[in-house]
Amino acid sequence: TTVHIGNVTYHFDNPEEAVKWAKEMAEKLGLRIEIHGDTIRVE
């Protein structure tokens, strides 16, 4: 599972961890997340 924040990509072996981490980052940055299969974007 990959999480994209701007130009930076993070890789997670556990999809649930990826979603949890992306949600925390989105809250901190005042952004929202979009999930497309195994790709998560924070925008």
Rank of each mutant, 00 (worst) to 15 (best):
residue 2 T to H: 12
residue 2 T to R: 10
residue 2 T to E: 06
residue 2 T to A: 07
residue 3 V to I: 05
residue 3 V to R: 00
residue 3 V to S: 00
residue 3 V to D: 00
residue 3 V to C: 03
residue 4 H to C: 13
residue 4 H to N: 06
residue 4 H to D: 04
residue 4 H to W: 11
residue 5 I to C: 07
residue 6 G to E: 07
residue 6 G to D: 07
residue 6 G to K: 06
residue 6 G to W: 08
residue 6 G to A: 07
residue 7 N to E: 10
residue 7 N to I: 07
residue 7 N to K: 13
residue 7 N to C: 15
residue 8 V to I: 13
residue 8 V to K: 15
residue 8 V to P: 01
residue 8 V to N: 13
residue 9 T to F: 09
residue 9 T to L: 10
residue 10 Y to D: 01
residue 10 Y to C: 08
residue 10 Y to M: 09
residue 11 H to P: 04
residue 11 H to L: 09
residue 12 F to V: 01
residue 12 F to D: 00
residue 13 D to R: 06
residue 13 D to E: 11
residue 13 D to F: 07
residue 14 N to S: 12
residue 14 N to A: 05
residue 14 N to G: 05
residue 14 N to E: 07
residue 15 P to T: 12
residue 15 P to C: 11
residue 16 E to M: 11
residue 16 E to H: 10
residue 16 E to C: 08
residue 16 E to Q: 11
residue 16 E to P: 03
residue 17 E to F: 09
residue 17 E to G: 04
residue 17 E to K: 08
residue 19 V to T: 07
residue 19 V to D: 03
residue 19 V to S: 05
residue 19 V to R: 09
residue 19 V to E: 08
residue 20 K to R: 14
residue 21 W to H: 02
residue 21 W to S: 01
residue 21 W to R: 01
residue 22 A to P: 00
residue 22 A to Q: 00
residue 22 A to F: 03
residue 22 A to N: 00
residue 23 K to P: 00
residue 24 E to D: 10
residue 24 E to T: 10
residue 24 E to K: 13
residue 25 M to N: 03
residue 26 A to H: 02
residue 26 A to V: 03
residue 26 A to Q: 03
residue 26 A to F: 05
residue 26 A to Y: 03
residue 27 E to G: 05
residue 27 E to F: 06
residue 27 E to D: 13
residue 27 E to I: 06
residue 28 K to L: 14
residue 28 K to T: 07
residue 28 K to M: 12
residue 29 L to F: 10
residue 29 L to T: 06
residue 29 L to N: 10
residue 30 G to E: 05
residue 30 G to Y: 03
residue 30 G to M: 04
residue 30 G to L: 04
residue 30 G to P: 02
residue 30 G to D: 07
residue 31 L to N: 04
residue 31 L to F: 12
residue 32 R to L: 14
residue 32 R to S: 15
residue 33 I to L: 12
residue 34 E to D: 11
residue 34 E to K: 14
residue 34 E to G: 07
residue 34 E to P: 01
residue 35 I to H: 05
residue 35 I to P: 02
residue 35 I to L: 06
residue 35 I to Y: 09
residue 36 H to R: 13
residue 36 H to C: 10
residue 36 H to W: 11
residue 36 H to K: 12
residue 37 G to I: 04
residue 37 G to M: 05
residue 37 G to H: 05
residue 38 D to V: 07
residue 39 T to H: 13
residue 39 T to I: 14
residue 39 T to N: 08
residue 39 T to K: 08
residue 40 I to M: 03
residue 40 I to P: 02
residue 40 I to N: 02
residue 40 I to Y: 00
residue 41 R to T: 12
residue 41 R to I: 14
residue 41 R to N: 07
residue 42 V to K: 01
residue 42 V to I: 14
residue 42 V to A: 04
residue 42 V to T: 04
residue 43 E to V: 15
residue 43 E to P: 05
residue 43 E to F: 15
residue 43 E to R: 14
residue 43 E to L: 15
